[in-house]
């Protein structure tokens, strides 16, 4: 079984639920990244890397700035360039931007407040719909144009995932061409843009589509017992694109069954 690695920094506080999110739902060995054990792992030994949320190094300087310069992120960067799937949630997203793996930067929410509530988001249709072959992201499942229409409709119009951030306002790169590329790679949008992000962008991928960063926390919307399973869509995506088996009896298995039948609930 390949591994899914989760880098943890001083201040990370979503690592446990993030680890369980992977371990409970996928046939992948989820482990906290430990360079003394993992530094020799090749791209082929790794299913994915998940940079979880919380804080890192007090978020001194800028959110994620110090973590971005850590040995752990140097490792992540190397593997990411080789094509390993990477997901960054919240502080993980900020770290990915600071590392330069994703474009742009995150600043204080426009409301000047800490946002801790579910937000309504949508996935850009082109990513979820197979017919558009130049927009792909390993974390988003793909459906044929006329299949699972209800599912496609829901996820491309509105679903709800909790948010928990003070610095969730995504700013696009200054340079025009970088800005256009970044905009073109926007995967997830806010419906109400609570944070004030540029063009309501909530999550973006890189040109290759193997790295996804987003502010809302899908790992917190993945258990029917605690309010919704819509966050599982991203795990469905990675299991599909990277051929990772879904764990029997898991929430994800139930979720995938329903999706297969064209239902979301």
């Amino acid at each position: 079984m390949k591994k899914t690695l989760l880098p943890v920094f001083p201040g990370t506080n979503c690592e446990k639920e993030s680890l369980l999110w992977i371990a409970d739902n996928l046939e992948s060995k989820a482990e906290f990244l430990d360079l003394s054990k993992h530094s020799t792992l090749k791209a082929d030994d790794i299913d994915a890397i998940f940079v979880p949320g919380g804080f890192s190094y007090g978020d001194y300087l800028r959110a994620g700035a110090i973590a971005a310069r850590s040995d752990e992120m140097a490792f992540v960067k190397k593997r990411a360039v080789e094509g390993v799937a990477v997901l960054g949630i919240c502080n993980g997203f900020q770290i990915l931007c600071e590392t330069g793996l994703l474009p742009g930067a995150l600043v204080k929410n426009i409301t000047r407040r800490y946002h801790h509530f579910p937000v309504s988001i949508r996935i850009e249709t082109a990513y979820i719909n197979k017919s558009n072959s130049n927009k792909k992201c390993v974390w988003i499942p793909e459906f044929n144009e006329n299949e699972q229409e209800e599912v496609q409709k829901e996820f491309t119009t509105e679903f709800s995932v909790p948010m928990s951030c003070g610095m969730g306002n995504w700013i696009a790169p200054v340079n025009e061409s970088d800005k256009n590329i970044a905009e073109n790679n926007a995967v997830i949008y806010y419906n109400h843009n609570e944070n004030g992000s540029y063009k309501s962008i909530a999550g973006i991928t890189n040109q290759a589509g193997n790295i996804l960063g987003m502010m809302p926390h899908p790992e917190r919307a993945s258990d029917s017992a605690v309010g919704g399973v819509d966050g599982l869509i991203f795990l469905l995506g990675i299991s599909q694109s990277r051929n990772i088996k879904i764990r029997a009896g898991s929430e994800l298995e139930k979720f995938a069954e329903k999706i297969k039948m064209g239902r979301t609930h």
Binding site: V107, K108, N109, R112, I171, V174
Partner: peptide, 13 residues
């Protein structure tokens, strides 16, 4: 400092 067109929320407050 923040670029001139980036909102400085703290300063504004």
């Amino acid at each position: 400092e923040l670029l001139p067109d980036v909102l400085d929320t703290e300063a504004k407050t």
